[in-house]
Design a binder for these strands. Structure first.
Lengths: 190, 190
DNA sequence: CAAACAAGTCAACATGACTGACGTAAATCA
DNA sequence: TGATTTACGTCAGTCATGTTGACTTGTTTG
């Protein structure tokens, strides 16, 4: 038996109803994240379909577009998938002329990845779709939403990956160090 | 009991940028959303593996747990998948005693879904994992992050689904009406 | 030179999505 | 009442994307 307060009640006792209301807030966040991501993914999917590509292709194309010269190993860390999974979509992107490879100058074992002009065009097209939705959402969420949301999303990342992501996205320093956090024990597994 | 300060206090600085910088901000949001969701999904996955379940099972279990008496048709709208996709995971959840069905009283064609105590236990276990991460992230993101993030995530949802989600999550009215939205429907058909 | 490393590849498999077609029982409409 | 619609279930096949394991080819490094 779970009781749910009406919005009026919720607003009234916002900071007093400790565990119960707090729990509802957290669950709302979780569910909203699910719905938001569901629709965030949706726009590009329709376009990708026309190219015979899927989300996996999109992700590769995006990060190569944003980070020219990315190594395959980097991509594996970013996407957290196996190289066999990556290989399939990467091969398609290369075969169809959206991505190219060059050997690294210093280390010739490495295959550095770059988008072609064609790849850049598609990547930008997809990015613009998503950015339009994000922009509208930020506007609707009001001032401060950008900063707060970025801090929240960044803090949702597994702690051991944050530094890598921070560097990858070239984020401002403020994002990491908003509040000192006491004890954090996450992602010790494996 | 995070304080819900007015979002203006949180950070009014970051939101007034120029076009080029603005674009970078939006891209950062998009990428952060990807990384956040990637890791948000990760915690439950490890537990689900032990039960022989996947994400699809988790989603069904979660929404049935949160909304006892949910109809199959509702679930399809929530998850935006086909009934054939749903059928497989739902059947497993029922066969293994995590979910039960009852015929609707008014309309006996309907199969109303409920979690069993066993199902409730697993659902809560998974929810707690995710809520712990969200709680830590909200703390780290500072005051105002909860409200701002919820508004942002809500606004990311496809407009035609917002009303439905709003009703489903029993969200406070303020979430929808931060900024005057022009046309809003009153249809409450769940 | 041997070992470690970056990357590619082959094969088999699991999950979760899809389409299309069909069945069944209950509600609703003409 | 009889026909149609609705809610749900199911069979069968396909596709996209993930997995593990094993092996190869270059290249760098100890």
């Amino acid at each position: 038996m779970r009781q749910r307060n009406s919005p009026q009640q919720a607003a009234a006792v916002m900071d007093q109803n400790l565990a119960g209301e707090d729990r509802e807030q957290l669950i709302a966040c979780a569910e909203l994240l699910f719905f938001a991501y569901r629709d965030f993914i949706n726009d590009p999917d329709k376009v990708l379909e026309q190219y015979g590509f899927g989300r996996a292709h999109h992700r590769v194309l995006h990060f190569v577009n944003r980070n020219p010269g990315l190594r395959v190993a980097d991509l594996l860390h970013i996407l957290k998938i196996t190289k066999q999974s990556l290989a399939r979509v990467l091969k398609q992107l290369i075969d169809e002329g959206f991505v190219t490879q060059r050997s690294g100058r210093e280390d010739r074992r490495q295959r550095l990845l770059y988008v072609t002009p064609k790849g850049n065009k598609l990547a930008d097209k997809l990015a613009n779709l998503q950015m339009r939705r994000i922009e509208a959402a930020l506007n609707q969420a009001g001032p401060g939403a950008n900063a707060a949301t970025q801090r929240f999303l960044f803090a949702m990342i597994a702690e051991k990956d944050r530094e890598r992501v921070h560097a990858l996205l070239r984020l401002p320093e403020a994002l990491v160090a908003f509040e000192p956090i006491e004890h954090q024990q996450q992602d010790r597994t494996t």
